[in-house]
C-alpha cells in the first residue's frame, strides 16, 4: 500500500516456509458457522502454524472475519451464532463444553479493525489485561507495561506521557497501543481483524513491521482486504470466497485455497484465486 511498485512477494521470499504448517497452534476441522438459519461459513479446514503469520483474504462477505472470530470464541457474543465442527488450540477443542471462553481469550488475543483503546490513560490501557486476569507477573507492573510498549514499538513515542489519555494518540499509535494491550496478557496467538484498514500508509507500514517483528514470539492470524499486505507480511495465505445459495440467494463463505503465500501469489492452483489476486474480481 505504501509503495505500489514493491514486489508482491517480498517478506515471504526472504524466509523459508515449510510446505505445510509444522506445529499447528490452532486447527479448524470441518468448521461450519451459522447465524440463526443463515449458513455463513461452509466446511473450513485450516491449520495455523506456530510462529507464522497466516493471512486470510477474500472479497467482502466471504466469511474470513467470521472464521477469525471463531478462533477465540468472540462469536459467542453474537446471540444467534452457532458453530459446528471443531477448533483445536494445542489439541484442545475450544468448543468443548468444559472450556471457558474467557480463558480461551486470555491465550488467544485480538486486535480489531478500528483502533479501540479504552478511554483511560495509555498506561492503564496496557495494564488492564494483567489486572483483570489477575496475572502473576515476573516483573513489576510498570516494567511489564514498558516491556509491552517496547514490543509494540511505541515506547519511545509515549514514555513521557503514560498518564495521558490514549485518545491523545494518532490512529496508528492507537492501533499499536491496542497491540501492546493485547500482548500484555501474554497470549501466544494474536488475531488481527483488518488491523490497518483505518490507518494511513505510513501507520500501516509501522504496524506491518511490528507484525513481522512479533512473529518471532507469537503466532499471528490476520484478516485483510489488502492483498499486497498479505503478500508483504504473511507466510501462508488462505483465500476465501462467497458462494450464493441457489434458492435463498444468501452468500455462504468457503475456503478456496490455502498455501504458502509465495505459491498463492505466484502460482495459485484455483482459477478463482488467480482471478482475485490478479484483480479480475473482488
Amino acid at each position: 500500500m505504501s509503495d505500489a511498485h514493491a514486489p508482491l512477494v517480498e517478506a515471504s521470499a526472504t524466509r523459508t516456509v515449510p510446505d505445510a504448517p509444522l506445529n499447528p497452534v490452532i486447527e479448524a476441522v470441518d468448521l461450519n458457522i451459522y447465524y440463526g438459519s443463515f449458513h455463513a461459513v461452509y466446511d473450513v479446514n485450516l491449520a495455523y502454524g506456530k510462529n507464522e503469520i497466516t493471512a486470510m483474504i477474500g472479497p467482502s462477505g466471504c466469511g474470513k472475519s467470521t472464521v477469525l472470530r471463531c478462533l477465540n470464541r468472540m462469536n459467542d457474543l453474537v446471540a444467534s451464532a452457532r458453530v459446528e465442527g471443531t477448533v483445536t488450540y494445542h489439541g484442545i477443542n475450544i468448543y468443548d463444553p468444559k472450556v471457558d471462553p474467557i480463558e480461551v481469550r486470555r491465550h488467544i488475543g485480538m486486535v480489531f479493525q478500528k483502533p479501540n483503546p479504552f478511554p483511560k490513560s495509555i498506561y492503564d490501557n496496557v495494564a488492564y489485561g494483567p489486572k483483570v486476569t489477575g496475572m502473576k507477573l515476573e516483573s513489576s507492573l510498570d516494567e511489564h507495561v514498558e516491556w509491552c510498549l517496547r514490543k509494540a514499538a511505541l515506547w519511545d513515542e509515549v514514555k513521557d506521557k503514560l498518564k495521558e489519555s490514549a485518545f491523545s494518540l494518532s490512529g496508528g499509535q492507537q492501533q499499536r497501543l491496542c497491540i501492546a494491550r493485547a500482548i500484555a496478557t501474554k497470549p501466544d496467538v494474536i488475531l488481527m481483524d483488518e488491523p490497518c484498514s483505518a490507518l494511513d500508509p505510513i501507520a500501516t507500514a509501522a504496524v506491518e513491521d511490528l507484525m513481522v517483528e512479533l512473529r518471532n514470539d507469537y503466532t499471528i492470524i490476520i484478516v485483510t482486504h489488502n492483498m499486497q499486505q498479505a503478500a508483504r507480511v504473511s507466510d501462508r495465505t488462505a483465500f476465501f470466497t462467497a458462494r450464493p445459495d441457489e434458492t435463498t440467494g444468501n452468500r455462504t463463505g468457503l475456503l478456496v485455497e490455502f498455501d504458502k503465500t509465495t505459491t498463492i501469489f505466484s502460482n495459485p492452483s484455483d482459477q478463482r484465486t488467480e482471478d482475485y489476486i490478479s484483480g479480475r474480481f473482488g
Binding site: 488475543g109 480489531f112 479501540n116 489485561g129
Partner: peptide, 14 residues
C-alpha cells in the same frame, strides 16, 4: 461503543 466491550472481552474479561 460496542468496540470497547469487544476489546475488553478480547482480553479475557468476564
Amino acid at each position: 461503543p460496542s468496540g470497547l466491550r469487544q476489546a475488553a472481552y478480547g482480553l479475557g474479561s468476564t
